[in-house]
Design a protein around this nucleic acid. Structure first.
Lengths: 205, 205
DNA sequence: CGCTGATTTCAGTCATTTCTGAAACAACAG
DNA sequence: CTGTTGTTTCAGAAATGACTGAAATCAGCG
């Protein structure tokens, strides 16, 4: 491996991480290398940088393309394929989330649904189905949330993140205010459907 | 493998998923089996159900314990170890998130920080550091959000999820209202610090 | 103690995955 | 068409990871 030390550490770490994930070491390393390279790289450059075989690079790039994690570029007057990663880290995050969902979550949901359709043949299966239903419900809640927030523009998404749990404090407050303002019972938080916000130190308290 | 068909499908699927993840097939299967079993199981029962060696079960249970995904129970007058998974799926989710963060995110953050401390030796390294800084920033935003919301009680967390992106509509609305109500400039969303909520069709519009 | 029943460890075997080099393939220029 | 440059495929080698059985260890109990 023939790389400046800073970059080498990064590449090696991603190789490690890659293998701890489903994706293999080489794929991780190539991705890391592309990520920190200012210009697109061709296969041969990757071979030299990482000291691995040409064919390995080819297969790994293929894998990265299957994940949509890498973009193919062509320079004028050059038949070689050049590769980069998208510039925007948020975009990368989205792609990653989408692909992992597709490969891991969706198949699981469909297996669960299929099993849940079948009539249980014993109390033991009956119980198992209940448990699976719980799991199914949880995953569905999470994916619904995901499907919802993934459409946000990045700036909004970042805002939502930085809000974090604070929003729930607002919900509590809302309950209180609703109670005061209208004599309605608190609790039953059909949360957030069409509430409106008001500036600090304003209005009802 | 000696299991009712419904349960077998589930167990096999989790084995598959396990290997697509870092965790191996057997570990996935054992977890799935424990998850759908109404009573805690001892090692020998797992051996019979899955048709694998005793020592493999022992090692895999060890691994599951390391992940805190499994709880050890002792029945009175029985020296054997019995295992279950926690009942609450939300709790399971929390554990999973926590452990994955510990194993995947934290080490990455620390590698990134370490690399970012070092002076770049070339323009190439300079650029690489910029990219790493972007990645570091993103991961930090995500973990900050995570650290924040993970403390919520389950009910609140579920509410937050079901709100999803709706909350950003509130933020937009807030900007508008703040503008109307106080003549402040919109934009610059130092979002949500101490805003208050008001019931629908109430107050300022 | 030393026996019993249970669990863990570990060295070696087996299986899977990753990686390579050679060969096939593709695109283009002359 | 033929030579050149670049990419992909693929069968087998190398490396890694999973699994097993035998032996070691542990925890109670008479």
């Amino acid at each position: 491996m023939n790389l400046p030390p800073l970059i080498q550490s990064f590449v090696l770490h991603f190789g490690e991480m890659g293998s701890r994930w489903g994706i293999n070491r080489t794929v991780g390393q190539i991705y890391a290398l592309l990520y920190v390279s200012p210009e697109p790289l061709c296969a041969e450059e990757i071979v030299e940088a990482l000291g691995i075989s040409r064919s390995n690079v080819s297969m790994s790039l293929r894998e990265l393309q299957a994940w949509n994690l890498v973009v193919l570029k062509h320079l004028p007057n050059d038949r070689r394929d050049f590769f980069t990663t998208p510039d925007d880290v948020w975009q990368i995050l989205r792609t990653l989330a989408e692909e992992r969902k597709k490969r891991e979550v969706d198949p699981t949901l469909s297996v669960l649904r299929e099993i849940l359709m079948q009539p249980p043949g014993s109390p033991r299966e009956r119980y198992a189905q209940e448990r699976m239903a719980e799991m199914h419900g949880l995953i569905e809640q999470l994916t619904t949330w995901y499907e919802d927030v993934k459409r946000l523009e990045t700036e909004r998404l970042a805002n939502l993140l930085s809000l974090g749990s604070k929003i729930t404090r607002l919900l509590e407050t809302k309950d209180r205010i609703v109670t005061l303002g209208r004599g309605r019972k608190a609790g039953k938080k059909q949360a957030g459907e069409q509430v409106r916000l008001v500036a600090p130190d304003d209005g009802a308290q």
